[in-house]
Design a protein around this nucleic acid. Structure first.
Lengths: 148, 148
DNA sequence: AAGGCTGTTGCATCCAGCTCGCATTTTGGT
DNA sequence: ACCAAAATGCGAGCTGGATGCAACAGCCTT
């Protein structure tokens, strides 16, 4: 059962046979303490605030390895860079095509679709990797009133 | 009501005030006649089979313009390049994370989720731009039997 | 049918967002 | 403390696409 303190995550690394380095510990720390949906570049910047010599490729390789170990996951919210968060916080995303607002999808929103896909196609949904696009309430309202 | 012959699509272009060039007509032709989910590069290759001097950036710019006019849409099926198809054929996609298989989602699969999002969040779903990932029937079966 | 305005093209170059190869440094087990 | 394996810094390279510009071609007018 993965939890969310740096020490618990570090323990997960050791169990997976990975070494614990300063860069790696910092990446985890930033993910635990930092903003919700950081990109690799934002992570790098925050890590560098504490350890200026960490290289971009180190962060990319760490994120890759952490993902392989099931500690973090990445999500594509739109056309820009991927965003990263702890695997224990995995959730679906709804992103507004018009204003870019990002909403966390309620846990059960995908439930019916997942059951339908399973029953009809045998397909097991893991709908967290890509956001689902659409129009947020405000933009949807604006779009309909703007129609002649 | 957009239909699927090149001439109808060309008419849509003229209505939108765009000019009809050889390159543009060829892109449409390939989309009408060609494979299901071509990438920009595959489109380019097929277009060049008929008109070898068409440049890559022309295809990218045409796809952008055709999208602006509502004639084509692009979809991200995974981490690779985007895929393009006619807007009249828009549909959701389910992509297997394990084997890469791409399924067209039945039209109504997103319905319940769309209604739930609308009712609870006011969010209007347009779930065609990104695929929804998961495991296809075969890979899901293999994954569960492989567990000790 | 010719002219001309303006959208479109070819070309070269640039860009973001990673990814890789390699020599050097660190880590964790003995 | 020692050593093999793993991780890092650094630079170069890569994919997929965007952009600035001069030359060209559609389409409208006359």
């Amino acid at each position: 059962m993965p939890l969310n303190t740096v020490e618990e995550l570090v323990a997960q690394l050791r169990e997976g046979g990975a070494r614990v380095t300063t860069a790696r510990r910092l990446v985890l720390t930033v993910l635990v303490e930092g903003s919700q949906h950081p990109t690799a570049e934002e992570l790098l910047a925050t890590v560098r605030a504490r350890a200026p010599d960490v290289h971009a490729s180190t962060v990319y390789r760490n994120l890759e390895e952490l993902e392989r170990l099931g500690v973090v996951v990445h999500t594509h919210l739109g056309h820009g860079p991927a965003t990263y968060h702890l695997a224990s916080e995995a959730h679906g995303h709804l992103v507004c095509e018009s204003c870019g607002a990002t909403l966390e999808a309620p846990r059960d929103l995908f439930e019916d679709m997942a059951q339908g896909a399973k029953r009809r196609l045998g397909f097991v949904l893991r709908p967290y990797h890509f956001a689902v696009l659409g129009l947020c309430a405000a933009c949807a309202a604006r779009a309909t009133t703007a129609q002649p």
